[in-house]
Design a protein around this nucleic acid. Sequence first.
DNA 1: CGTATGATTGAACGCCGTCAATAAGAGTGG
DNA 2: CCACTCTTATTGACGGCGTTCAATCATACG
Lengths: 244, 244
Amino acid sequence: MSQRLDIHNSEVPVVCRSCEARHRGICGALSADQLITLSKHTVKHTLSPEQSVPASRPSSSNYSNILKGIVKLSKMTSDGRQQIVGLQFAPDFLGRPFGSQPEMAAEAVTDVKVCSFPKSLLETLIAQSPELEHKLYEQSLRELDEAREWMLTLGRKSAAEKVASFLYLLATHADPEADLRSDSVAFEIPLKRSDIADFLGLTIETVSRQITKLRQAKVINLTDNRLVEVPNIDRLKALAEVGP
Amino acid sequence: MSQRLDIHNSEVPVVCRSCEARHRGICGALSADQLITLSKHTVKHTLSPEQSVPASRPSSSNYSNILKGIVKLSKMTSDGRQQIVGLQFAPDFLGRPFGSQPEMAAEAVTDVKVCSFPKSLLETLIAQSPELEHKLYEQSLRELDEAREWMLTLGRKSAAEKVASFLYLLATHADPEADLRSDSVAFEIPLKRSDIADFLGLTIETVSRQITKLRQAKVINLTDNRLVEVPNIDRLKALAEVGP
DNA sequence: CGTATGATTGAACGCCGTCAATAAGAGTGG
DNA sequence: CCACTCTTATTGACGGCGTTCAATCATACG
């Protein structure tokens, strides 16, 4: 036992030390003591693409933090048409605190690691520290902004503009300074075509055709159907045709 | 000066007494003292349809509560295509706390009354009472649920289903028990056709045609283009064709 | 090598947008 | 009261965009 441990009898748990959720996610609002409590009831899961996140099943009484990978939130009509209503990245929080659970699936898009914990525990921690609720509130505001931005795309843009908007979204996400520098950007499309279609409210075929058109117009460069190179990000942005 | 005023030197301000925002809105989280402070910096506005809410202009440093009427939140592409991304009712809070202001217009749909106050004041009050932030968080979660529900409609439903979904939304909003009782419901469409079109991601003509079809199929009964009677709400719900 | 999954491409149909004409009300002013 | 205008809504004809159906290709895996 080190002296340090005697002086501070509460230190950040090992599992949390290099965790992104503690640096940029909601766990940043918690004290060392609270992290210890939380870590005792925590389970890590690894998910392959298409697997659903434990926390998303109504049966489960868990919430989760994404540690790695991408998770899609989607809704379905009774006859099977599907719409992706959100994409979440590390270190996002997954779950719907306070009451009503809207019908929604949460599935891994890439390989995903999550950190799950009981719902009741989060609610206890919220009661203790307002800063935790503040972090949750800020995430929900970000998600709301993204959802509304995407409603404009779903409701009012052509297929060509939708696909360009999607690629522009990925490009700027992969490289946050891309929209400033305006030269070449390269990234990987983490979704398969059917996910892109469900995200854009299109069919697989239309998505494929539009990507082909972008490639023929030299706006993008495709190598292996996933790896995209954008020589001039401003040309892509112009095709996305979004308001000022 | 009455005795009462001496005993409780802080009473709920007159302007707040019968205000819905105090009963169901965010002001319910405030103490009498806080309400007094707030009411001193408060201005009420009356808006006609198409007028934009003061709080929505970036120049303004105000937030608002809706006291009466309906407000639409909308986004536009650079070439003028418009999409309504949210409808807000009394006693909703209007504004975007904490940083980035997404490009969005807020305009009255009906005759509207709002109660406006400085942004800085709200932030002070939030710091004082966590319960206020909790109310704001809950509203943003409701808005997020609604936005995602609507994304499914925008991305995956036909024009007929969109219009039916919209009318079903109004019917259940006008009469919350309508989906249980399943007999006749009557209500007024508070939006004009162009607003409905912008809400559904359609054109005015398509909206008009679909309403005509619903009327011919006796699913609804129109009198003055605004007044709707739904003889059997379940038939309408079936046409909205939404998931389980 | 055979199968499964994902992606591309082609051909034809159909929904919904576009353009245009008409109608119905509301407000204004003579 | 009527004439005029402006806004809002309805209806029709036509064409294009995106879906649907179907065939082909590429890659991974057993």
